[in-house]
Amino acid sequence: MSTNESILEVTDLRTSFFTEGGEVKAVDGVTFDVPAGKTLGIVGESGSGKSITAMSILQLISHPGKIKGGEIKFRGKNLLDLTEKEMRKIRGNQISMIFQEPMTSLNPTYTVGQQIRESYKIHQGLGKKEGSKRAIEMLKLVGIPSPEKRLDQYPFELSGGMRQRVMIAMALACKPDLLIADEPTTALDVTIQAQILELIKELQDELGMSVVMITHDLGVVAETCDYVAVMYCGKVVEYADVRTLFKNPRHPYTVGLLKSLPRSDRDQEELTPIKGTVPSPDEMPVGCRFAPRCPFATDLCHEKLPSLDDVGDGEQIRCWIYTDEWNGDPGVKVYEPERTTES
């Protein structure tokens, strides 16, 4: 898929929730690679399965959810073959996660110092003194002023931006090889977001980590990612390097997202929304999941689900247009660059 060696290869991952209303296929055949040392972005609208994909990688899915199948190869080893005990050694150590809402993963009854020390104790067997020393180093690393004082503070005593920094410090405490960041800045103001994203990027360079950046913000993707997987209804519909995705998007859904986006960097006459809404789990189309909203859909699209296929240059697309079976307009132009008035 890519020329770099991959640190993570997810293949045909499927995770469902078995609810009273039936099976909800939250992640329905997700495939992507994370090249070592790079950042992969996962984008998609609310409910497309981004968080469940991340939770599946760390096997944090609980009842009524279940990982049904697929492969999650981390450094060549399938994580789904590991026992819970073996997984525990990987979590927070080789693979770490930052969650959208820091309060859900920081324990409100322990001080910042206690929480970071705990991580050193579990994974590296460090005592209180050595743990504190390392914790101070971490807090300094993420740009927290007077880290010695912060060690004794509780999460509620910190501002939102500070808490997010503490989260990052905790996630990076054991110098993971892979960091999964699920909407790490969505709850923050843009000026704080800019700080946090830059911080993650700098730490990635210093520590040589690979990153999976989950977001619904295409601006964040463009600024932080090397590769991008676009998700729709539990499936990856386009996988490409970041320049290709923005300069030459090929999947009709990706193009629809870009055309819906109001831009802060230039004037636009009109937005072109994607028509309709995301289908609910109980009325999922049988063919291409995007067919009811796609301006190019043919009868083939409505009847048969396209597969995620290589289209060259390490890019993958899930759309009939790019296959020999395409029965619509042979000269169809999915994307035409807008003529814009740059500011």
């Binding site: 939102g160 800019a194 993707v221 463009a222 600024e223």
Partner: peptide, 23 residues
């Protein structure tokens, strides 16, 4: 600073970012 902090959906966009201190 506010305008410079907005992430722009264009990988070629020139980032001349002003980082504000603190909260």
């Amino acid at each position: 600073a506010l305008l410079s902090a907005i992430p722009v959906p264009d990988p070629d966009h020139d980032k001349d970012r002003i980082f504000l201190q603190g909260d």
